[in-house]
């Protein structure tokens, strides 16, 4: 898994497909308010675009997209975006995860809930994407033989 692939056709095809899958994943996350979609599905698609490069061209090239050491911290960031949104609403006087109390000026509570749902969908998508890449990385390297 450490070295690149020998076949240029597979690498070229993966390089052609990967940005479009990533774009579609972002579309699914950000258009999830108006069509079927959301954080979980979009996160899985984003992870698929990264994992396609990892399978096709080895770890070295695809670590330019997401480094292996970055997956766990970014997953923590995803969970903290969700939890921080809820805690912020709690500190501003509402209930926990009640987006109507978020401190964004100029919006009615309905549109504050609209914005809050978008923020937590981004957090969910980031966490799911990073956990899926983490699953693949750890399984591909197997158990580390430390002696």
């Amino acid at each position: 898994m450490k070295t690149g692939s020998e076949s240029p056709i597979i690498v070229l095809g993966a390089r052609l497909l990967s940005p479009f899958i990533m774009l579609f994943g972002l579309y699914v996350i950000f258009h999830g308010h108006y069509s079927p979609g959301g954080g979980f599905q979009g996160g899985a698609l984003l992870a698929a675009s990264v994992l396609l490069m990892r399978v096709a061209s080895g770890t070295q090239i695809s670590s330019l997209m997401v480094k292996e050491s970055l997956t766990t911290p970014l997953g923590v960031v995803g969970v903290l975006i969700y939890f921080g949104t809820g805690l912020l609403a709690f500190l501003m006087g509402g209930d926990f995860l009640d987006y109507g109390a978020l401190p964004i000026p100029g919006l009615s509570p309905e549109y504050l809930r609209y914005t809050g749902i978008l923020i937590i969908e981004i957090g969910v998508g980031l966490a799911v994407m990073m956990v899926m890449i983490l699953l693949y990385d750890k399984m591909a390297t197997g158990e580390e033989e430390v002696e």
Binding site: G38, F40, V128, V131, M132, L135, K138, M139, G142, E143
Partner: peptide
């Protein structure tokens, strides 16, 4: 929707245990 994602996490842990 949530059950599918939990299922993926369960399979990940199961395969890690098998490795």
């Amino acid at each position: 929707l949530t059950a599918i994602v939990v299922g993926v996490a369960t399979q990940g842990v199961a395969f890690a245990l098998m490795i």
